[in-house]
Write a protein that binds this DNA or RNA. Structure first.
Lengths: 208, 208
DNA sequence: GGGCACTCTAAGCGAGCGCTCACCTTCGGA
DNA sequence: TCCGAAGGTGAGCGCTCGCTTAGAGTGCCC
């Protein structure tokens, strides 16, 4: 499922498996444009131009502008879910697993903040069917985090009065990184991940 | 629909001072439309229609569609900042002040989530000047929260290794409530506020 | 060499956009 | 009773949007 290759700085490139080359260039161009201006403010002429092609070329590889957004959303969510699950299934107790999950998930949302922004904030631009598919993927994120917290509570490692509410808050915290993270800012994705892992362990009252 | 009155929980509708009546109706209609569909996907015909007027009437009260967004953003930010500052200046030690600030701020973002969504997510649709004005208001939010945390650290009540980072995280947590909060969901704004105040006190390692 | 599948472009269609304009109605004050 | 300001409308302008169409260039198999 995830043939995600890694770059020098450890970031996962989500588009490796998209072929042919022209289709991938269009997808990358669309991500940049959607992240910068938003879906509705982006024109198909702009996307095609960024990919070095004429406006009509877009419609050889994608049926509509919405299909581009749908593809981006699905791939983006799948990659993020993959990152979260892999980390959550790592060795160690609930505290280590939760910390690793938050660290990875935040690192992804910071490093891939352009993709994450599109994926998180343009959901409403999708039609009902595509939207339902993406919402289902989101629920799997929720379940993955809640599972770790429940494990920690059952083991007596965490002190969490409201598991569902705390799960929402933790995911919300991680996801919103995509909104404010700035590549030219003072923090690297790794540093934000480390900070957030510590904060989340405090939120669940982890022992130690 | 939403007239300028106080709701049951004492929250003030932000548009009381906007006159004349037609201008206020247009503003409220614009908030609803922008929150539902996004700024760029909203047409001036839709806004005017919701306010029960012809498309041309909009331009009697506002020069452009962007001016509507600018007005909404400024008023929304000012109200939110007011809520945050009032709570932060309340009686009690840093822990009580921080808890009250988070509780009020979250309650506002949940209760006024349509306004908050517009204000937080449509910033990029503003021109450079209007945008700079709004960014300045945001920095005041940041300073208000950081002030309380610094007080708590100085008094020995909080344990916060990274004050700036923790401030960003706390504000991010509160603001993102506007994205996921659902009126038909299981939680009231008050309940979310209480949960989040508790979580934030844990994040800053408040004694007790 | 010839036919075919694939990829791309130049040109442009119909629709809907933000916004304007000429004109109409209402109403308080002289 | 008449006037002018304020607030409203119907029609529509100029433009750009998402998307389509006719046809050209290229490489591959026979």
């Amino acid at each position: 499922m995830s043939t995600a290759e890694e770059t020098a700085d450890g970031e996962v490139q989500p588009w490796d498996e998209v072929t042919p080359d022209a289709a991938r260039r269009l997808l990358v161009a669309a991500v940049e444009a959607f992240a910068e201006r938003g879906y509705h403010a982006t024109t198909t002429r702009d996307i095609a131009g960024r990919a070095g092609m004429s406006p009509a070329a877009l419609y050889i590889h994608y049926k509509t502008k919405e299909e581009l957004l749908h593809r981006i959303s699905r791939i983006g969510h799948e990659k993020a879910l993959d990152v979260l699950r892999t980390a959550g299934e790592s060795e160690g107790g609930p505290a280590e697993r939760l910390a690793e999950a938050v660290r990875s998930f935040v690192r992804w949302h910071a490093g891939q903040h352009t993709v994450a922004r599109v994926v998180q904030y343009e959901l409403d631009a999708l039609g009902p069917d595509a939207r339902a598919e993406i919402v289902a993927l989101r629920r799997q994120n929720d379940a993955a985090v809640r599972g770790i917290i429940e494990d920690g509570v059952a083991a007596g490692d965490f002190d969490v009065p409201d598991v569902k509410g705390t799960t929402i808050a933790i995911l919300s915290l991680c996801i919103d990184v995509a909104r404010w993270f700035n590549v030219n800012g003072p923090r690297t994705p790794d540093e934000v991940g480390a900070l957030y892992a510590d904060l989340v362990l405090r939120m669940v009252g982890a022992k130690g």
